[in-house]
């Protein structure tokens, strides 16, 4: 009798055991679905409706009219190009600058940690503050520091954020994200085996050769992670565009276009159609890059 209850208890705790992981993960899953997936389904529904916030009486089923509009007006392709271009350039530039910083900081020297601290600060600054500070105290035609230097060098002042908004946004994003790349690459550099490097220097392999044939292959995994995470963050960059360029000069990304359509143009239906198209494009890009880079991640995580 006593043993019978024990077995029962064991069986009970075994089933409890079996369902426990699901119970643990369910709240996070439900929360995440409720705030990201469900709204997306609603976005799809909105995109099939004629709905302008300024004319709330005229709601109707629109079928694919909004999509026809999206593809016909010709805003979509430039926005895709802007999004992909700005993301790609910023990721590449910040990766290169970050690699350069990482190599500089991998040496032992006096005050190394202070230099590292100075360099990571731009990544910590509130992005909205960065965009404003760069626009008004660095890029400004009259009082901007960069133009002060440019003029001292004998050139005439450049209206960075008005004349060259595209480059300005890339400069700003690179400044913000290179420290992030640097941090990841630096931990890659520091995980290199010292013996291999010493062996290389004993063999009189030059600095550049050592870097190209030993360090870079070792860094590969770190570079992939840096690119993946950088892309996730930079694809969503909205602040510099909203604050610095307002979408001028080829910087009207999908996110900004949707914002304009919905919250300036008040057209929910059309904005939703842009949203759906954006998501489909992102899914395509993300699946390709995630699937290839995911292996790295899983192997890195589950050691």
């Amino acid at each position: 009798m006593a043993s019978g209850t024990k077995i029962e208890q064991q069986a009970k705790s075994a089933t409890k055991e079996k369902f426990l992981p699901r119970k643990l993960i369910a709240p996070a899953l439900i929360f995440s679905i409720a705030l990201t997936q469900v709204p997306f389904l609603v976005t799809i529904y909105f995109s099939l409706r004629e709905w302008n916030l300024l004319k709330p009486q005229e709601k109707a089923f629109a079928g694919i009219d909004n999509y026809i509009y999206v593809f016909k007006t010709g805003d979509l392709l430039p926005a895709i190009i802007a999004t992909v271009g700005l993301t790609a350039f910023s990721v590449v530039c910040s990766l290169l600058v970050g690699l350069f910083f990482a190599v500089l900081l991998d040496r032992k020297f006096r005050g190394q940690s202070i230099a590292r601290t100075l360099i990571i600060t731009p990544f910590l600054i509130m992005p909205a503050a960065s965009a404003l500070i760069w626009k008004f105290s660095m890029f400004d035609t009259n009082i901007g520091i960069i133009n002060f230097v440019v003029q001292k060098l004998g050139f005439s002042a450049i209206g960075w954020s008005t004349q060259y908004p595209y480059i300005s946004v890339i400069i700003l994003l690179t400044w913000q994200y290179a420290p992030f790349m640097m941090l990841i690459l630096l931990s890659g550099l520091q995980s290199q085996s010292r013996e291999v490097l010493e062996a290389a220097s004993v063999d009189r392999a030059g600095v550049l050769r050592t870097f190209a044939f030993i360090t870079l292959p070792h860094l590969r995994q770190y570079i992939e992670i840096a690119i993946l995470l950088g892309t996730i963050m930079l694809l969503q960059a909205f602040d510099p565009i909203a604050i610095m360029t307002k979408g001028t000069g080829g910087t009207k990304t999908l996110a900004y276009l949707l914002y304009e359509r919905a919250f300036v143009g008040m057209n929910v239906g059309q904005a939703a159609a842009y949203g759906v198209v954006t998501v489909i494009l992102t899914i395509i890009v993300a699946t390709i890059s995630l699937r290839s880079l995911f292996k790295v991640f899983i192997s890195g995580v589950s050691k």
């Binding site: 426990l20 999908l254 899914i283």
Partner: peptide
């Protein structure tokens, strides 16, 4: 206490981070 399909669950979570804010802002 890993469950089956850990990778699927992880993939789901990380993919929601890839999802642009644009996807959910209007309904929200």
């Amino acid at each position: 206490r890993p469950i089956v399909k850990v990778q699927d669950a992880l993939f789901f979570f990380i993919s929601t981070r890839f999802m642009p804010a644009a996807a959910s802002i209007l309904p929200l």
